[in-house]
Design a protein around this nucleic acid. Structure first.
Lengths: 237, 237
DNA sequence: TGATATTTGTGCGTATGTATT
DNA sequence: CAATACATACGCACAAATATC
């Protein structure tokens, strides 16, 4: 976190969350903020653009940066957040069960999904997530061994993202996701407490590193009554 | 579309879609693009940032702007798209049925949702969407009459967004959304061809204008087997 | 109604840092 | 080591929208 505009962004997020600035009001003008943070307007504008992108403010020309009501949704972050990070944020009692963890060569479907050649090895991982005593999410991960070597059961139980970012020092950057509803499979029945539900919400994600290499395909299968997803969307003109 | 960087953005999107630049390759460098488009690097960088935000490229320091595989998802745009725009894109046979359209004062729950006072009038609109002969979406809209006066059944049948943007000349800017799964209501049963499903996917949206006024709350209730949502998410560090 | 100040948007130039090739 | 390419930061000028008096 050495970038000046990111530091300023985090400062402003904190101030908004703590109610220093209130919904409906405007932030101090860009010129005032340059004085407050002793920097250039360009840097302030980068910070404000981040705030805008993340739904904290709406910039209105000639008026100012209007602070948005952030209370309606707050916690259940959209975007690219590992299960561990999420559960920490929500402060829930969670447990991960690892059902499968092995290396295999990819079949046709997986090869087209991960965009890889016939001879590459792929980790197949199956894990269920238990929250407050109920197993409600089944995560099926497919990860290129080339990019992420040395996975163990212990890592899979803890956090694969943490291993990738801190041990391997790779930077996870972005994901393309698709959300659909499907009927349950035998695997779902085996590993989830379905509580009578015959359908699951499935999030299919393609995950990329900062250097634009696709390294992971994941199916995250959720019991529908425990599923929630929050999104912030700007209209493209 | 007079902004230089938006024109350049659209040019580059077109070029990528037409295959002039291919997935995995890099775009010409920022300096080369300044020459090609006869502009400054700053302007090029704004255009490239738009491409990056919309999932077309990934900027890699020291390397270039890598073009991403845009074929996996393409069509079913995430974000803030009206039903009419969407159905046009998909080229489907669609029909809108208007079940309710009237003005009322808001009850407590709606007042807190739309953040409005006791005496304000609110449009209540209920519409179902028929695609290829099946009614699969039920849209329940609540719109401030202060902001959007003069709604008619004909407008509701066609496109309310089109009316707001073209007749009233207001700019719809962004939305905060929440996606959950709920059990069907009597209203769902009455207006949807549920095909045996006992649950629906519900998208709750709060929609804002460019000047940051919240003017609409919508519940869009989808038959689960026909539901799809696509998302592009960057990891926040 | 109209003039003026304020505030954000756009565009250009330059310098320096940092990662990759 | 050098060249290339993107990232950050600062400064300036003018345009466009809004608020205020």
């Amino acid at each position: 976190m050495k970038n000046k505009f990111i530091v300023i962004y985090n400062d402003l997020v904190k101030a908004i969350r703590q109610g220093e600035f209130k919904a409906g009001d405007t932030l101090p003008s860009e010129n005032e903020l340059t004085i407050r943070f002793e920097t250039s307007r360009e840097t302030i504008r980068k910070a404000l653009n981040l705030l805008s992108q993340n739904g904290y403010i709406q910039k209105v020309r000639g008026k100012g940066s209007v602070i948005l009501d952030h209370s309606k949704f707050e916690f259940p972050v959209s975007g690219l957040t590992s299960f561990h990070e999420l559960s920490n944020q929500l402060g829930q009692t969670v447990k991960t069960h690892v059902h499968e963890l092995f290396l295999e060569t990819a079949n046709n479907q997986l090869r087209s999904r991960l965009n890889c050649s016939k001879d590459m090895k792929i980790w197949k991982i199956s894990r269920s997530r238990e929250i407050d005593g109920e197993r409600i999410i089944l995560d099926k991960d497919y990860i290129l061994e080339d990019v992420v070597p040395g996975l163990t059961k212990s890592i899979a139980e803890h956090s694969i993202y943490h291993y990738i970012e801190n041990q391997l020092e790779l930077e996870i950057s972005f994901a393309k996701k698709e959300i659909v509803v499907e009927t349950v499979t035998e695997e779902d029945t085996a590993h989830l407490d379905l509580d009578g539900h015959s359908q699951v919400v499935v999030i299919r994600s393609y995950v990329y590193l900062a250097d634009a290499t696709l390294f992971q395909y994941t199916e995250s299968r959720h019991r529908p009554d425990k599923f929630q997803f929050v999104d912030f969307a700007r209209r493209t003109k």
